[in-house]
């Protein structure tokens, strides 16, 4: 059994400093690893990234993260990732990592993902260059996840994204904005590999539980959805 703790959308900045960390006291007993599903910062500044790094520094379990759209807001996602990595957080974008846990090896494939929509109500690479680049970014993001999943050799595999791979976990959000909350290409990538769990954030008003068309469990771990410091999922 491998136990995964996961949370997204903590949106930390100076005024949130310490608020989240004081909820992490029980982490060692709860889980083997902590996954962060993006939107770690409010505006994606280096200063906010430092708050995040300090909030998650020196925890008793490894921390693996992807960035979210807020972490891109200041056009410095690489700098944000660098600050987190300096404090020992593994930041993934289109790549995977394997964490040795007492119950076995956990593979984590991470990508931010992107919007675009779901079958039948989905944007396509057509028309204006802005539209094409929007959809192209979504395709590349999903391709990154697929690329990250492929070579993972582990006893259990988790797909970690910020945007949602499915509509199930968006229930509660206005349906009109579903297309901005995720992309079915992420689910397709997940279903193309042997994945045990997919976690994402981004949809604050969504619901926790869903599945991909291929039957992989999807969990929306956005902090407002959870109402608790993190979700804990036992695999195997």
């Amino acid at each position: 059994m491998i136990t995964v703790a996961a949370v997204g959308d903590v949106h930390l900045d100076e005024e949130m400093r310490g608020r989240y960390r004081r909820r992490l006291g029980g982490l060692a007993g709860d889980a083997d690893v902590l996954l962060l599903a993006g939107d770690l910062t409010k505006h994606g500044t280096v200063e906010e990234a430092r708050v995040v790094a300090e909030e998650f520094r020196g925890l008793p379990v490894p921390v693996v993260a992807v960035l979210g759209n807020h972490d891109y807001q200041s056009d410095a996602p690489d700098a944000v990732a660098e600050v987190l990595r300096a404090e020992g957080v593994t930041v993934l974008e289109g790549e995977g990592t394997v964490v040795d846990c007492p119950g076995g090896r956990l593979g984590v494939a991470g990508a931010k993902g992107f919007a675009m929509g779901f079958p039948g109500r989905c944007a396509s690479e057509f028309g204006e260059p802005e539209m094409k680049s929007f959809v192209r970014h979504s395709r590349e993001a999903a391709e990154g996840l697929r690329r990250a999943l492929k070579p993972l050799e582990a006893d259990a595999v988790v797909a970690l994204t910020h945007y949602s791979p499915v509509e199930d976990t968006l229930a509660g959000e206005p349906p009109e904005i579903f297309a901005f909350l995720g992309s079915y290409l992420l689910a397709e990538a997940i279903d193309a590999s042997d994945v045990d769990l997919a976690v994402h954030g981004h949809a604050h008003r969504g619901t926790e539980c869903g599945t991909t068309p291929g039957g992989v469990r999807v969990r929306n771990v956005a902090l407002p959805v959870l109402g608790r410091p993190y979700g804990v999922y036992g695999i195997g």
Binding site: G227, V232, G234
Partner: peptide, 13 residues
């Protein structure tokens, strides 16, 4: 204001 002080519980998949 988002609350995240709910009890942590494990879900076994």
């Amino acid at each position: 204001v988002v609350r995240f002080d709910g009890p942590v519980r494990e879900e076994r998949l």
